[in-house]
Write a protein that binds this DNA or RNA. Structure first.
Length: 592
RNA sequence: GGCCUCGUAGUUCAAUGGAUAGAACGGCCCUCUCCUAAAGGGCAAAUACAGGUUCGAUUCCUGUCGGGGCUACCA
């Protein structure tokens, strides 16, 4: 099934082709979008204004001619407006047909992609021995949603948690483990114990330079395969993974792989040798570097920076003068592996915007090596404090992700207690969890991912207004109706035995149907731009349309012919909400 | 210094170059003998500044001011 705008665009393009014949480029596709203002109809196209200049026609006249050609169109009333807009007001009959079609379609009208791709999505990527903090929220939640969306659209998706399990921080952690670590604490809360230890060593190193040397030598021993240090290192990873898994389970986020930095250790040396042998990398000040190959204009070249009016090289360093490898080296090896072993067509990195240059360099080096694929840095803005500086609490600590989750669930629990005091305790807990975690996810996904974001407890954990519980509540309302309905026609319709006869009369019914039909076009658009906020704001709009319908259009108390139409709208609202929210990774509830 | 990015109601956020710039929170006013009021209906309130391109600019270009990021051996 084509989406409404696709269907209209096809007819419009035919009409334009008939009108302009040769003047129209061979592959021209008219663009049809939902109108922002309903007074101008449901969909509109500015194709006549776009084409008028090259066709040397008056835009209004061209639009009028097209409107005339489209007069017989069954799905919409077509009209000309303003400087040359072509407006389409979808008929109630068309919406009625769409609703029936959606009811019989598991995908609710959302088309599959024409060319499925194998996509590796790299997101979350916390460091070992450090708990996740608020800074990990964006990557984790956005990445998960993109994976869900891409899978639903028909792509083959591999999610990979590229944890930081091989950094220089292990020198300090190893020293701390051996000299400071409280074993009892380690049993109790391993990640916290490791963090405390790490911080203490870090502090002492600043005071005693000789300690820093001791840490470095621990790191060297680890890297050269010292058995004791390797065992400690493995235990660090193990306890960290266990701690992280708890949060991921709570958030309902799953990874196909956890291939951390250490996984690529053996690939680094050969990689550097290969780059050297092929002349892509060279030695400079003792380090092995990749410099610009001059393909780009200086301004677009990720290996150049302008200083004092001159373009200076900023190479990607892949081996330090002391022989150690870096972030860039590991990332190149990782990318190789994903192409070779996973046969990835596309790799998406859900990583903060400050690393833009890093990824440009990595992708450019792959280009120099002749490695092809659709590599994307899906960037997002920073989380800032109220002072618009990178977020920290007053004492300089970041807030742990677990604290945010716990606080959210607690706040939700208080509201549940207030609104549904008679609910069984176990259900109260379930509701609080779904509402609290849903609120965090929805708050994150509602924003444009590129905007910076001011961390605020009250905002992130808000439960009123444009938030998850508003949407969850609209679903609850539908389910409450459906539990009470006693209508054999509805039952037969749900089982697919009877095609419902639908009549859309009231303004709010039509508005709800219009919004429901748009789901089919919103989901692909959300993935195309990797912008979950498009789907989030659509779902909010749908919930509003439903609440508004709910107030004005009684379902159970209406006469049977009207009732069946309204029940269909309710059922479709439930299905779209359920599918849409599941794509965002947010649970819905039967009651709340 | 250069490059990137952002600047929208009191606050936090929206808006593939489209028509009268949308929401939410906060403020003010209404609506529960009626399917869950975690709701609905209404009021007041904004594009940093100056130019330019365009039939049409929050969006594109130039400059100014202001925030953030990046700018060779951290990740």
């Amino acid at each position: 099934m084509m989406t409404l705008p696709e269907q209209i665009a096809e007819k419009l393009t035919d009409a334009l082709r008939a009108e302009l014949s040769g003047a129209l480029p061979e592959n021209f596709q008219a663009l049809v979008v939902a109108s922002q203002d309903l007074r101008y109809g449901d969909y509109q196209s500015n194709a006549a204004m776009v084409l008028a200049k090259s066709a040397r026609k008056n835009p209004r006249e061209l639009a009028q001619a097209v409107v005339t050609r489209l007069e017989g169109m069954t799905e919409a009333e077509v009209s000309l407006a303003g400087p040359g807009f072509i407006n389409f007001r979808i008929t109630a009959t068309e919406y009625e047909a769409r609703m029936v079609a959606m009811l019989g379609d598991e995908r609710l009208g959302v088309p599959l992609v024409k060319h499925p791709q194998k996509i590796v999505i790299d997101f979350s990527a916390p460091n070992v021995a450090k708990p996740m903090h608020v800074g990990h929220i964006r990557s984790t939640i956005i990445g998960d949603t993109l994976a869900r969306l891409a899978r639903f659209m028909g792509h083959i998706v591999i999610t990979d948690n590229h944890i930081g399990d091989w950094g220089t921080q292990f020198g300090m952690i190893l020293w701390g483990w051996k000299n400071l670590l409280n074993q009892r604490e380690l049993e109790h809360d391993p990640i916290e114990a490791l963090l405390v230890t790490y911080k203490e060593v870090n502090k002492r190193c600043k005071e005693q330079p000789e300690l820093l040397e001791a840490c470095k030598s621990e790191l060297v021993r680890l890297q050269s395969g010292d058995v004791e240090n390797l065992r400690i290192w493995e235990r660090c990873i193990e306890v960290t993974k266990r701690g992280l898994q708890k949060i991921y389970d709570q958030l309902d986020i799953h990874f196909d792989y956890w291939l951390g930095e250490s996984f690529y250790n053996d690939a680094l040396e050969p990689l550097v040798e290969d780059l050297l042998a092929r002349g892509i990398a060279r030695e400079s000040d003792g380090a092995i570097c990749v410099f610009s190959d001059g393909t780009h204009k200086p301004k677009d070249d990720p290996f150049l920076v302008n200083k004092e009016g001159e373009w200076q090289p900023v190479p990607a360093i892949i081996r330090k003068a002391d022989g150690a490898f870096l972030y860039a080296t590991t990332d190149l090896a990782t990318l190789d592996y994903r192409i070779r072993e996973f046969q990835a067509d596309s790799i998406w990195y859900v990583v903060g915007a400050p690393q833009e240059k890093h990824f440009k360099q990595i992708f450019d080096i792959e280009r120099m090596r002749g490695v092809t694929g659709d590599f994307r840095h899906v960037a997002f803005g920073s989380i800032l404090g109220k002072d618009r500086r990178p977020f920290k609490t007053r004492d300089g600590e970041t807030v742990s992700l677990q604290d945010v989750i716990d606080e959210a669930v607690e706040r939700a629990a208080r509201v549940v207690e207030d609104k549904s005091p008679d609910m069984p305790a176990e259900e109260k807990a379930t509701v609080a969890e779904a509402v609290g975690i849903g609120a965090i996810k929805f708050a994150e996904l509602s924003q444009n991912r590129l905007s910076d974001y001011i961390f605020d407890w009250d905002k992130m954990l808000s439960l009123s207004g444009d938030t998850a519980p508003y949407l969850q509540n609209s679903y609850v309302r539908v389910r409450a109706i459906e539990r009470k309905v006693d209508d054999p026609d509805f039952t037969a319709m749900l089982s697919g035995d009877v095609r419902p006869k639908i009549d859309l009369v009231e303004e709010r019914e039509i508005n709800l149907a219009r919004t429901l039909a748009r789901f089919a076009e919103v989901v692909p658009a959300t993935l195309d731009d990797c912008r979950p906020n498009l789907l989030a704001s659509y779902l909010y709009e749908l919930a509003r349309a439903f609440h508004s319908f709910y107030e004005a259009c009684p379902v159970l108390r209406s006469t049977s012919s009207i009732r069946i139409s309204r029940l269909v709208l309710c059922e479709l609202t439930a299905r779209v909400l359920h599918l849409g929210m599941s794509l965002l990774g947010i649970r819905l509830l039967e009651r709340m």
